[in-house]
Amino acid sequence: MNVPAATRAIVVARIRKLWPVLLVSVAAALFFGWLYQNAIAGRQAGGEVNLGAPDAWLLLPTLFTTAIAVAVAFACTSHANRDPFALVEDAAPLFGRERARANAIIPVTIALAAAAAQYAGARLSPHYATPPTFFLFNAIAAIAAMLVALSIPLRDGAARILYALLACGSTLICTVVALAVIGFTNGVAAAKAGLAYYPNFNDLWGGVAEASFAALIGFIALRQYGEALARYDPLPPANE
């Protein structure tokens, strides 16, 4: 594959900038996966949670991955102020969409690594019971969340919070779409499906539906990020 030199340069720059974030994210996700698996086993034993019944608590892994995506986006917020890479890239003859694609590669890789680390952490737990497909669905949702969260550094104030909430919303919608399709294809009314099918997450059509929905969200988010980058005015900080 012929990767453009500018894309390669931006990817290398992002690796140099974000590798500590990658390490912290993977470590946190590994620990969370292990802790979550133990905690859910404890709740089951205490009769507090029934894996066959709706329980918002079961969405925690997806929300955790989204939180990592938002944290990665905030780690990129030095954009155009003191970030030596951003100052050079703002002056470089690149289209917004080129920069958007190149900028997205490493954050999305971090989000996927966090989802994979959650699975690894869960497997390390002696109480491991969650189907691996769930973690695959989690990873698909993480891509959509990360692509939405990429716009956070380009926004200020309330708009920044709104984008963080949109990232959370996109992962939840992706998961709900998958669950609804699982319910439908298993012969259960979609309305009743919800989280009830959580333990039976080995469903091809649920995965296909979620991946399609995540691809749609991701495509729109990446296009929008490219447009925002093209229009963005990187002002110097007023207090310097």
């Binding site: 030199a5 500018a6 340069a9 290398v12 720059a13 003191r82 030596p84 890479f85 050079v88 470089a92």
Partner: peptide, 21 residues
């Protein structure tokens, strides 16, 4: 002027040359 984010000036110039093709 920002500090050099790379280990050497050569690496910085290589990075810039890639961005400007």
């Amino acid at each position: 002027p920002p500090s050099n984010p790379f280990d050497s000036p050569q690496a910085y110039f290589a990075y810039r040359s890639d961005l400007w093709n």
